[in-house]
Design a protein around this nucleic acid. Structure first.
Lengths: 190, 190
DNA sequence: TACGCTATGTAGCGTCCGCTACAGAAATGA
DNA sequence: TCATTTCTGTAGCGGACGCTACATAGCGTA
């Protein structure tokens, strides 16, 4: 059981789609299985247990997020890179992936496994992708790492509050302010 | 049932302590009741249902957070205010209140009630307290609101990632960078 | 054909959950 | 004093959950 097979991969992809749509926190096997055309019995045949499935879903979502960031065209400068990254983060699938990440991180807050470990992994890979994008926009790796620390934390916080007030005009000003701040950090002007 | 009585308030306080310690996401009535010396039966006598209890707990936690911010001594300038607020946010009870807020916000991400509504209220009151503190540190209210938008989002994001790497030296540099950024926004130098 | 492995359906176990029906105790007011 | 209201314990309902035992269908291979 739980070997790496094509069927398992197919189920993992479908399950990820479902979780991105319906959330992680009160995920249960029977509705998930019904929605993706299988049964709880089969999920637990292809995955060791629910935690194994959840970890796989989170890794799949992270794969998609990182791939989408790495597929972005190069940004002309650091400030623009922040705006580009935010635009990418709030459109299409990446938006849902971030939302899922927030749920997983909240589940990991009190050390629940497997969430805490998987979120740690995911954060490392996500930050790497952001750093690479910022470096490509023209700054040193050290400055980029520092800039991404600020960038990543703020993006996460904005994701948390975003559904509370989706179209607030203050939000675009916030993104502009963040872009200035990140550019300033990346330029090491201080 | 669920009238406002002294007994209800006592239970609400004890329940809040318990939830701050053990988390909100997989809260269940029986362990909570046992820990605070009552029974699930009595909780559901004093509160309409579990959602009512949870909403009360979240409001109690928000009360404590806001009170703690408002009890802070005035900061000499905006930059120092950010450092003071972060220091306050990461010590003692406020740290746990923020963690609980993150959990509630994650639960509200997909529109689950009562979390979404209560988190919206909580955020408004929290932001008001932060804005007042920044204004007292010497800037206009308009600038303070803009600064707090950045400040609040970043704090939330840092809370999300903080348990992942508790004593990272990069974190203090991040707080410094944020303080510079917020001071810059508050000074409207751009 | 016969065997053995993979895959799948059926049915249900044990547990925890929020919540409630019911009865009695304790307090309160006439 | 007695009736009424307020509180609390016992016991359990109905349902959802993760997970599993069991039987079997399909299928490639010797």
């Amino acid at each position: 059981m739980s070997r790496t097979t094509a069927r398992r991969d197919t189920l993992a992809g479908a399950a990820t789609d479902y979780v991105l749509e319906h959330g992680l926190i009160d995920l249960s096997l029977r509705p998930l299985a019904a929605a993706i055309g299988t049964s709880d019995r089969m999920l637990l045949y292809h995955f060791a247990d629910k935690d194994d499935l959840v970890a796989t879903v989170l890794r799949t979502s992270t794969d998609r997020s990182v791939a989408e960031i790495r597929a972005l065209p190069r940004s002309p400068d650091v400030r623009t890179a922040v705006l580009d990254l935010w635009a990418a983060s709030t459109t299409g699938q990446l938006d849902r992936c971030q939302r899922l990440y927030v749920e997983a991180a909240a589940l990991g807050l009190f050390g629940r496994e497997p969430h805490a470990s998987v979120v740690r992994e995911a954060n490392v890979r996500w930050v790497e992708a952001l750093v690479d994008h910022i470096v490509d926009a023209g700054t040193s790796r050290a400055n980029a790492e520092r800039a991404v620390a600020l960038l990543d934390a703020t993006f996460m916080g904005m994701q948390l509050d975003l559904p509370l007030d989706p179209e607030d005009p203050a939000r675009s000003r916030l993104v502009e302010d963040l872009a200035d701040a990140v550019a300033s950090v990346a330029a090491d002007v201080r």
